[in-house]
Design a protein around this nucleic acid. Structure first.
Lengths: 136, 136
DNA sequence: CCTGCACCCTGTAGTGACTACAGACTCAAG
DNA sequence: CTTGAGTCTGTAGTCACTACAGGGTGCAGG
């Protein structure tokens, strides 16, 4: 049970790159760790817990700003589950909207590509479609 | 039938913002237009055609780099439809992958939010989920 | 002729979430 | 004592814009 990590060990342990860890510290989502005499960072298991929170949150599509908000709530023990739930559901809505957009896009692109004959210029329907002014 | 536009008129006609038009010129996807004595840009219908191409391409999710490639092909009349089709199908694949990712995300988020009771700390399943180290 | 206003110009900096250096320092092993 | 791996700071790059700041221009009304 190691309880202190150099930044390299911390990176290996957490699966987050060294530069990203320093970046998180710089923007204030990860608290600055203690330093050795030479100025090397010393991370603790507390930092690991917090970084895990951030990494998971990022994987789930939360922005660093949103994670900062969540962490502020957690740090202050001042959140209600309902509060967090609202933030999360707002997210789900965004994700659903993005999916809908991409589905539309996928259909248009596929439809255009399907018209392709493989012949030479100027019968390429993709190029033609791009030159058309009408909206999607 | 107007054939020359100031940047403002061009923006209105194309639906692309003035700053974006200047940006497109700067990065070389839109050729630099002629200038008046005072240095004002004078766009032509050729520019409009090209900007339409770019706008449509962006709407379809092509990056500006990809559009630069497509335009190079179009400018040189050197493309085959198959070439363009390959680029397009590569795109469709990317879009499909993104959709799959988001769908997985949507499910995980919804599942987590559904466990919510609305009670206070420390029973919030969302916060708990974020502190868990296991992958999605 | 003057004033005001809309329009235009360039250049720079900001966004989000990192990533990639450059140049210097430290530490441990051989 | 040297070598190599690890670490430090700070800056700049990515993508596709967007938003200024600080100036110049063009035209109409008074």
């Amino acid at each position: 049970m190691i309880s202190e990590y150099s930044i390299g060990a911390f990176a290996r342990e957490s699966g987050v790159k060294i530069e990203t860890i320093r970046f998180y510290e710089k923007i204030g989502v990860l608290p600055p760790p203690a330093r050795t005499e030479a100025g090397y960072r010393r991370f603790t298991t507390e930092h690991l817990k917090r970084l895990t929170f951030i990494r998971r949150g990022r994987e789930l599509g939360f922005s660093l700003d949103e994670l900062r908000d969540l962490l502020r709530l957690v740090d202050g023990h001042a959140y209600t589950c309902a509060e967090v739930r609202a933030l999360t559901l707002g997210h789900v809505a965004e994700i659903s909207a993005k999916i809908a957009d991409l589905r539309r896009l996928e259909q248009v692109m596929s439809a255009i590509a399907d018209q392709c004959t493989g012949r030479r210029v100027p019968e390429c329907p993709i190029i033609d479609a791009l030159f058309e002014a009408r909206p999607l």
